[in-house]
């Protein structure tokens, strides 16, 4: 496969995520869309790692290939941490307002 298909797929997923963030107002779904974006990045990184693996120059340094996959691993770690905090915040807000609608979040403006 050429890398451009992977790029296309990842960017498409990423943009779908962005569109979701832009169009939805349920904060949980927005958060899910962000997770979608992160996954798109993960896919792209793995694809890139395999791209570099395919190029002849890199054969001498196999670590490079693993680098990106380790990075993906870290992204997952961070995502997990973020989810715990994010959901805690959302739940806290829900406890106080009984809503997760971001449109109601306009006490702070101007």
């Amino acid at each position: 496969m050429e890398i451009k298909w992977y790029i296309g797929l990842a960017v498409a997923l990423f943009c779908t995520g962005i569109v979701g963030v832009l169009t939805r107002r349920n904060s949980i779904i927005i958060f899910m869309c962000i997770e979608l974006m992160l996954n798109a990045v993960n896919l792209l990184l793995v694809a890139f790692s395999k791209m570099h693996a395919a190029s002849a120059v890199m054969q001498s340094n196999p670590n490079v290939v693993s680098d990106a996959q380790i990075f993906v691993f870290f992204i997952m770690v961070v995502a997990a941490a973020e989810v715990s905090v994010g959901l805690a915040i959302i739940v806290m807000l829900y406890r106080n307002t009984h809503s997760v609608d971001v449109n109601f979040l306009n006490r702070l403006k101007n």
């Binding site: 962005i18 963030v21 832009l22 169009t23 107002r25 927005i30 971001v102 449109n103 979040l105 306009n106 006490r107 702070l108 403006k109 101007n110």
Partner: peptide, 17 residues
């Protein structure tokens, strides 16, 4: 210009995009 700061996350993100 402060009206840009509408308080809506959606608009903020839109601006960023």
């Amino acid at each position: 210009i402060r009206l840009l700061q509408s308080g809506q996350v959606g608009i903020y993100v839109l601006m960023m995009v």
